[in-house]
Design a protein around this nucleic acid. Structure first.
Length: 111
DNA sequence: ATTCTGACGTGGG
DNA sequence: CCCCACGCCAGAA
């Protein structure tokens, strides 16, 4: 993988690779990057990625499959709508079929 | 410099 | 199932 300007770039890279209709978790990304215990930093990176169009932060959820970061989207329902637009079912801030559509970088990228 | 908080995760009671 | 504590690191007050 690439190691550009640091942790943030790496996070963006992984998030960008998330296919439409799929989701992943902060922890999964963190683990993939080797910073498993710093899943919070992934969220922090997302915060910084807020202005990047290529970084679909709406596909990144917590390990519970909850839209924890929806509040950071500006509109409370923006994140959910984006996900539903990709065919992902969301109810009460929770993604349905989470295990099914879960996209694990370590697994999908065949590390 | 110190303290708190946060888009998290795991583990114990 | 619910609540709490810890680890981790970066930024704001």
């Amino acid at each position: 993988m690439k190691n550009d300007s640091g942790f943030f770039e790496m996070v963006y890279e992984v998030v960008r690779l998330i296919p439409p209709g799929r989701v992943t978790s902060y922890g999964a990304i963190a683990r993939y990057l080797g910073t498993a215990k710093s899943a919070r930093m992934v969220g922090w990176a997302m915060n910084a990625a807020h202005g990047l169009p290529d970084v679909p932060a709406h596909r990144v959820l917590n390990r519970n499959g909850l839209l924890t970061g929806k509040q950071h989207f500006g509109a409370p329902s923006a994140m959910q709508e984006l996900l539903e637009k990709e065919g992902i079912m969301v109810m009460e801030n929770q993604v349905q079929n989470f295990s099914k559509i879960f996209w694990d970088p370590e697994k999908e990228l065949s590390l």
